[in-house]
């Protein structure tokens, strides 16, 4: 089979999508880890309320998030105030705006597996580390993180993949700007709407293959990582 030629428009959408997913995943690992740690360890009675807030994007339609973001990123919301620091008016229609949206939207996919991993290792390893006089920070780095590795891998892969698959939120706050906010899912949608089905087919099939590989890889990695521990 010959490889169909991709237009520069399509290539830029692919590049943009990978960039968005990668940056979002890194931010989510940085932000999500302390949240997951706290959710796994805290005894606060209201922690499940916080967990619920984190999980909300799982069930909310992307249009709800998109609508709130459109208002929040705009001149009358906090996003507009931040944007005014460099003389812009809004964070909507920008790559940064998409990153903010994606971080919120994909948060549960990263936090949940990491939290599960932290919970699964139990108190015991941490107590042992404490009796060996490891500082809490040292314990976290040398004991908790390695033990929770499968959770981190799952979270990172899911966060990345889910951001690649994001559509509704981007459609509502992106403004369809090539090279800035026109990601793969929106490009496919555009192709379908304009009846350019040849291009749509190539991209859509690519997404199916991508999703298959992601999920399969994740399952295999999880199995492999989990084994030595047992």
């Amino acid at each position: 089979m010959s490889v169909p030629e991709l237009s520069s428009e399509t290539l830029s959408a692919i590049r943009l999508t990978i960039e968005l997913a990668a940056i979002t995943t890194v931010i989510l690992l940085l932000v999500g880890t302390p949240i997951a740690w706290w959710l796994a360890r805290s005894k606060a009675w209201w922690k499940e309320a916080i967990a619920t807030v984190v999980a909300l994007p799982l069930v909310l339609p992307p249009t709800v998030l998109g609508f709130y973001l459109l208002v929040a990123l705009g001149p009358s919301g906090p996003g507009g105030q931040i944007a005014s620091l460099w003389g812009a008016r809004t964070l909507a229609f920008t790559f940064e705006g998409l990153v903010i949206g994606s971080v919120i939207y994909s948060m549960p996919f990263v936090v949940q597996p990491i939290r599960n991993a932290f919970e699964a290792m139990g108190e015991r390893p941490l107590e042992v580390a404490a009796t060996l006089r490891a500082s809490p920070l040292r314990t976290f780095w040398s004991v908790a993180l390695p033990l929770a590795r499968p959770g981190f891998l799952t979270g990172a892969v899911l966060g990345f993949a889910h951001t690649v698959g994001e559509f509704g939120v981007v459609l509502m706050i992106g403004g369809n700007i090539p090279g800035e906010t026109k990601v793969l899912s929106v490009a496919i949608y555009d192709y379908v709407e304009t009846l350019r089905w040849a291009e749509a087919t190539v991209l859509a099939a690519g997404m199916v293959v991508f999703a298959f590989i992601v999920i399969l890889t994740m399952t295999l990695i999880e199995k492999r990582v989990a084994r030595p521990g047992k």
């Binding site: 459109l70 705009g74 001149p75 009358s76 809004t90 909507a92 229609f93 459609l171 403004g175 369809n176």
Partner: peptide, 19 residues
């Protein structure tokens, strides 16, 4: 230029002040 998916969304972008 920013593009709404349809004219309703183009209107929305102006209405919310984003454009």
């Amino acid at each position: 230029i920013v593009q709404g998916n349809n004219i309703a969304q183009a209107f929305q972008f102006v209405q919310t002040g984003n454009a």
